[in-house]
Design a protein around this nucleic acid. Structure first.
Length: 491
RNA sequence: CGGGAUGUAGCGCAGUCAGGCCAGCGCACUACGUUCGGGACGUAGGGGUCGGGAGUUCGAAUCUCCCCAUCCCGACCA
């Protein structure tokens, strides 16, 4: 079964690529480094969007839209920010094409050179803060809690579908606050919101914590991140929330008058998740038969496949199948009845397994005679025959079971692949042989962090929030350390 | 930008070294028939400026030169 998919054990990277393409999520485009997100992949992204959007709005945020193009000078205003993004920016230098002299093809019209080049946004802090400046005068204008759904461009050398592409889709929140405390709370609110979404909807457990100085966002005072563990033992950063302090307010001169009449710089945050989450979905739950999509995220939650010979038999099945479909839809489930006559049942079974549809119902003449239906669940690949009258009731419960099972399986995997290590030898061995999250003491210096990264390719994924504190010695330098941090090789 | 490779049907490839009667194979596609409870089978079809240009030759996918594109390894990197 599924021998057209590379097995995870054989070549995990190849398995991932095969799966993304064969499950119709996305493909490489004619444009280097850019992908086409296909309808099925986009439908999953739309589920991600709609749930996150709901959560943002429930916490007081509103949506807006800012330009794709950013004047180069805006980027120069915040020094760390320039440093972080300058090397991967696409730049617009001209605004017109003309016919070539020989009449064949087009060329850039040199007469259309822009006075100031425009950067295609790799992130929108600069254009947004230059705008907020005009919106904020008084504490009465705060807080400003805005999100935008957008595409961004970061010119990557090596790209992989969903995980690293030159253009990707995301949401970016940009908030302005009167006090440091409030901005810090916002940063934390969002990282918790992301963790909730990824755990409860995507079914992927995450670790929450701070980024180290070297790993944090360019321009941030502090970056909070959530990290998930993929099945090959590598970590994937699933979302980040940044406390920007007054860095951008100062760079763009955004001041407000507080209640006492004093002029103050605004405190700010920014936060985002991207289509990279699609990669997390594939790599956290997928198996050798294809995708496994948690019910909360599945564009199609139930597929009904009729088993029949000839039109008359199909017609007999149709009324029963459509009634089941209607009943399930009344329960809020999204159901597809696949009565295509051009493909055989076996083909359809394999196809929906590949696409990760949580539940498959099969109904044939035998079921019709017995008053039964076959229920197959994708996560466990198990099948059972149930009384057809119980379908709706059974499936409502089954969806919850599947959602929980998928999460618990991932959590179990993460627990089995998280290790405490106390010596450099153990550290190296764990990274080389098993991967996973490594909890180790670190002396807190960027030098040590870099040396560890150079020697093992493992980086500090997070410094946990909820760390109990524990005295120990840095696994690399032997210097004293007050807590363990999480190391892993990462995507 | 350095090192290596590859461009032949929608996809994956053979043919190139030893130029001709060879443009071919698998999958996919179309039609018809038999099938249909785990990716069916048979028969018959359609589809190609052999990456582009110039040259050598009676004759070029094949040899020569130039160009273009893509991929891999390095460098670089949420």
């Amino acid at each position: 079964m599924a021998d057209f998919l590379t097995k995870r054990e054989e070549n995990y990277a190849q398995w991932y690529n095969d799966l993304v393409i064969k499950a119709d999520l996305a493909e490489n485009s004619a444009v280097r480094g850019c992908m086409v997100i296909k309808p099925y992949g986009y439908a999953i992204w739309e589920k991600v969007q709609s749930e996150l959007d709901r959560l943002f709005k429930a916490t007081g945020h509103v949506n807006a839209y800012f330009p794709l193009f950013i004047p180069k000078s805006f980027f120069e205003k915040e020094a760390d920010h320039v440093e972080g993004f300058a090397k991967e920016c696409a730049v617009v230098t001209h605004y017109r094409l003309r016919k070539k002299e020989d009449g064949k093809g087009l060329e850039v019209d040199p007469g259309s050179k822009l006075e100031e080049e425009l950067i295609i946004r790799p992130t929108s802090e600069t254009i947004i803060w230059s705008t907020y400046r005009n919106w904020i005068q008084s504490y009465r204008d705060l807080p400003l809690l805005i999100n935008q759904w957008a595409n961004v461009v970061r010119w990557e050398m090596r790209t992989r579908l969903f995980l690293r592409t030159a253009e990707f889709l995301w949401q970016e929140g940009h908030t302005a606050h009167a006090t440091k405390q409030e901005a810090l709370e916002e940063t934390m609110t969002i990282i918790n919101l992301y963790a909730h979404f990824i755990q409860d909807f995507m079914g992927i457990p995450v670790l929450k914590g701070y980024k180290s100085e070297t790993e944090k966002f360019a321009g941030a005072v502090d970056t909070y991140a959530i990290e998930a563990l993929m099945q090959d033992g590598k970590a994937l950063q699933a979302g980040t929330s940044h406390f920007l302090g007054q860095n951008f307010a100062k760079a763009f001169d955004v001041q407000f008058t507080d209640k006492s009449g004093k002029l103050e710089y605004v405190w700010s945050t920014s936060w985002g998740v991207s289509t990279r989450l699609m990669g997390a979905l594939v790599m956290a739950h997928g198996d050798d038969n294809g995708l496994v999509i948690p019910p909360n995220l599945a564009p199609i939650q139930v597929v009904i496949i009729p088993i029949y010979k000839g039109d008359s038999q199909l017609n007999e099945l149709a009324s029963t199948a459509l009634k089941i479909k209607a009943d399930l839809e009344k329960q809020g489930l999204s159901v597809k009845y696949d009565d295509r006559d051009t493909h055989k049942p076996g083909f359809k079974f394999a196809e929906y397994e590949l696409k990760g549809v949580p539940v498959r119902l099969a109904i044939g003449p035998r079921d019709l005679a017995n008053g039964t239906i076959e229920v197959a669940r994708r996560d466990t690949m198990s099948k059972e025959i149930i009384n057809i009258d119980k379908t709706s009731e059974h499936l409502t419960k089954l969806m919850i079971d599947i959602q929980n099972n998928i999460f618990n399986k991932s959590l179990d995997f993460r627990n089995k692949n998280t290790y405490k290590v106390d010596s450099w030898d153990e550290f190296r061995e764990a990274i080389e042989k098993r991967g996973g999250f490594i909890l180790a003491h670190w002396d807190g210096t960027a030098e040590t962090e870099e040396k560890i990264k150079n020697e093992t390719r493992a980086s500090i994924r997070i410094i946990p929030f909820d760390d109990p504190g524990e005295e120990g010695k840095c696994v690399y330098s032997g210097k004293p350390s007050g807590k363990r941090v999480v190391f892993a090789r990462a995507y």
